[in-house]
Amino acid sequence: MTECHGLAGLVPTAVQTTGRVVEHEPMARDTMRLRIECPEIARQILPGQFFMVRDPRVTDPMLGRPFALLDTYDGPTGEPIGVEFGYIVVGKMTELMTTWRVGDECEIWGPLGNGFPVPKDFENLALVAGGIGQTPFLAVAKEALGHRSYGDPLRQLSNFPQSVSLSYGARSAEYLAGLNLFEIDGLDLEISTDDGSAGHRGFVTELLAARIAGESPPDAIYCCGPEPMMAAVARLAQEAGISCWLSLETPMACGFGICFSCVTRVRLDDGSWDYRRTCVEGPVFPAETLVL
């Protein structure tokens, strides 16, 4: 990633464009997967980056909403021509989005944000996801396992982790989204649900704790989910001395650094903290730099 004025998530090649809905399918209860044709974004986007999406036909809702890259998909020539993302229906914008049909146009701008670190320096990479926070990890896992490359020019990893695991927690089985997508060669997938309707009964952090106590503990953790869950993951990582990165899901108005809405408290060298914009300094932060 080219750093720009110390803002790791400012993307000088981002574009604003009109995308076209190509697929729109349910992933789980209240959860949909959208595939949008937008070659200029698909060509360059990296795992852990995001884009903003809105409906240009209306001003209520008016602002775009941020969505993490689930994966890119290729056109007939084998080049990426669009992006996929998952969303959970929670409010006015996502309710409107459920009415989008194949062929509809939407406004989309990106890629935005810094993305996860290039997974080339780790032996055992643990991905930890809560709720809809699992969506960034499909592309991360595919890249880390050598199944797909991203970016322009295509990012080629000099080294791959020996193991990649995904610990994915949801409220209940019906909310587990896109499990079929995560059936990837080499991905060690573990599930937890709060009510025990699938996988481990309990929190996803318990799966991570067991993994840390196991025979080949992770030496890197990437995490995305609700903040209390990410704070718990950060504590586990810190206690075990494991490098950990968190991808924040802070609400945003613009997504590219001009509104100063999406601030989070970041530790400074002198021990104090300052508000920093999640969109242009993140959304992925080393866990120890955040005041959670």
Binding site: T59, D60, P61, M62, L63, K92, T250, P251, A253, C259, F260, S261, C262, V263, T264, D274, Y275
Partner: peptide, 30 residues
């Protein structure tokens, strides 16, 4: 963006919320 004589951290989040055909902000001159 507005500049003040001294640095200002700005207001605590949430700093914006969308409303009907508009939005509220309380950035606080961060």
């Amino acid at each position: 963006k507005t500049v003040t004589p001294q640095p200002r951290a700005g207001n605590p989040p949430p700093r914006t919320i969308e409303t009907s055909c508009g939005m509220l902000n309380s950035i606080g001159l961060d």
